[in-house]
Amino acid sequence: MKTAAPIFIRSLTADAIKLKRTPILWIALLGGLFVTGLVFLIHYFSVNEILKPDTNPWIFYCNFGMTFVSLLLVVPFVVLVSSSVMFPEHRAESAKYLYSLPLRKSQFYFSKLVMVLGIIALTYLIFFTGHLLSGWLLGFLRPQYGFHEYAPQTGHFAKILFHSYLSVLGVAGLHYWLSVRWKNFIIPIGIGLCGYIISVILSMVQRWDMAVYFPYAYPGMVGNELGMGDSAGLIPIGWFNNVELFSVGFCVLFAMIGFIEESNRNVK
């Protein structure tokens, strides 16, 4: 007798079982908390120089956090998560078994991609919750800064983090493909590192005209403009902007290239 759960949900559950006893969820937790901890410490020790008096400290605190996440965390983190999620599959040489099951290859491929995107989203959620809690704690430890006098800007914070999440999807799609393609995770991590360095250089020289075609630069661009208010060449398109739409487009493109390649490869 077969269980009635939809086939894709069953694949996701199978992928979730594979996360047991792996460091991936710890990476997600610590990744989110690391940045919020860093932002908390910066504010705890030098808040007078950062926060302006008589303004809602939550807005700056959240914007600062989002910029920090976008600039520092997301690219290395996404590279690490994609490689870590695929690592047990490569080690088990699971393709020869999974692809001999009477199931579509797309089921395995896209379920894993959703898993990678879900773990990144989870990190954002952990960061969101942790950051608000750290602001609340800062209100106790440094009452003069007024965190308890203003309402936390949860809606605003959720919105800018969502924009940041969209901006990272291009890199996520690319690195998922690379992680599926190469058993040796040093290759995707090396490519990710190069991409990250180039994105930092593009940001430093402010070549937004070039950066707009380079997915590694997107989180930094969105973080700079939506978080710190610095111009990073974003063009608003409705609720979104050009970089976010490019990011989603690149995610779909890389995911599809990866899928076509995976579907047609001979499993040695």
Partner: peptide, 25 residues
């Protein structure tokens, strides 16, 4: 096929549970 494709970090039971999930068993 040759050496079995096992997730070494998981128990035997969990390895079987994964296939049960995939096949809806």
């Amino acid at each position: 096929i040759e050496a079995p494709s096992l997730y070494r970090h998981l128990s035997g039971y969990d390895n079987l549970r994964i296939t049960c999930q995939y096949l809806g068993l």
